[in-house]
């Protein structure tokens, strides 16, 4: 049953994710006062990349160069399994870890200096992003369970956790923000290093990366909704998704790309403030 449910959810997650990426771009374009691409544009891009020629640079370390793409898709499918069936959120943390490994591996394996910079930036942004993700563990102290299904069940009796742990919610939101395109925290894909870690991944590989990213955006948004809002009807989730996306797009449109060190400092300070706040709260109260 669980397997069937997961398999059914994969195309749904993929389509929702890719349409959301398109919608993200569309909203940014509307803020900029232009018509903007249609919302299915990212899907067209992805299909186009699938039918493009694919070669590997001769400087690349081949197994890793190809392997990371499979790993990215596999990792977020695993993440989707966790979300759909309400498994332990620590596996999601492992999935997120794998995503960082993909960024690093894709960047370093190609032999291009731009990719290398993207990969290294991914490494030190990890130092800030991992604590951000791990902040979710604070929820455990309240609900006494790391199973997402238990956390949802807890909220159905005690109300959304969003109001009890606003700083944790902010941390999770920052994670999402650092993962969408054109966002101020997406330093691994900044313009100054061409396309960052993706520079040398093109053709089918780029299509694979886009697939992984679209499932990723679905998983991260679902995680936010499940952990901080709890049980809601389907339209409630849809509304929540769109609200999240619109806010992400507004932030992406209205801010410049931060310099790498600023970005890491920003994420790091949110994580440390969240941890310290709940630590002190736990000690004093």
């Amino acid at each position: 049953m669980e397997i069937i449910r997961t398999l059914l959810m994969i195309p749904v997650a993929f389509l929702v994710g890719i349409i959301f990426l398109g919608l993200h771009r569309k909203i940014i374009a509307r803020i900029q006062g232009r018509p903007g691409p249609p919302i299915q544009q990212e899907l067209y891009h992805l299909l186009k990349f699938f039918v493009k020629e694919m070669t590997a640079p001769e400087t690349a370390s081949k197994p890793i160069y190809f392997g990371v793409v499979a790993l990215l898709i596999g990792a977020w499918m695993l993440g989707l399994t966790v979300i759909v069936n309400g498994y332990n959120f620590l596996i999601l943390l492992a999935v997120f870890t794998m995503h960082k490994l993909v960024e690093h591996g894709a960047g370093l394996s190609s032999g291009s200096p731009y990719g290398k910079f993207g990969g290294v930036r991914s490494v030190y942004s990890t130092l800030a992003e991992h604590p951000l993700f791990a902040v979710l563990a604070i929820v455990y102290l309240k609900t006494n369970s790391l199973m997402i299904s238990d956390i949802v069940a807890y909220q159905s009796t005690h109300g959304p956790l969003l109001f009890q742990f606003p700083l944790c919610a902010l941390a999770t939101y920052t994670i999402m923000l650092s993962k969408v395109h054109h966002s101020p925290l997406a330093i691994v894909m900044a313009k100054d290093i061409v396309t960052g870690y993706k520079t040398e991944h093109f053709g089918v590989l780029r299509a694979g990366i886009l697939t992984g990213e679209s499932i990723e955006i679905f998983v991260l948004m679902s995680l936010f909704m499940l952990v901080y809002i709890g049980p809601a009807p389907l339209w409630g989730y849809a509304l929540g998704f769109i609200l999240l996306l619109v806010s992400l797009s507004f932030i992406s449109a209205l801010s410049p790309m931060l310099a790498p060190y600023h970005s890491v400092m920003f994420e790091g300070s949110i994580a440390s403030v969240a941890v310290l706040y709940y630590l002190l709260k736990g000690v004093i109260l």
Binding site: A94, K100, L101, H104, S109
Partner: peptide, 17 residues
């Protein structure tokens, strides 16, 4: 040396988790 350097990263991240 990407593969070996990635191993450092793998160990760091997995140990954090």
């Amino acid at each position: 040396g990407a593969p070996y350097i990635i191993m450092i990263h793998v160990s760091t991240l997995l140990i954090i988790v």
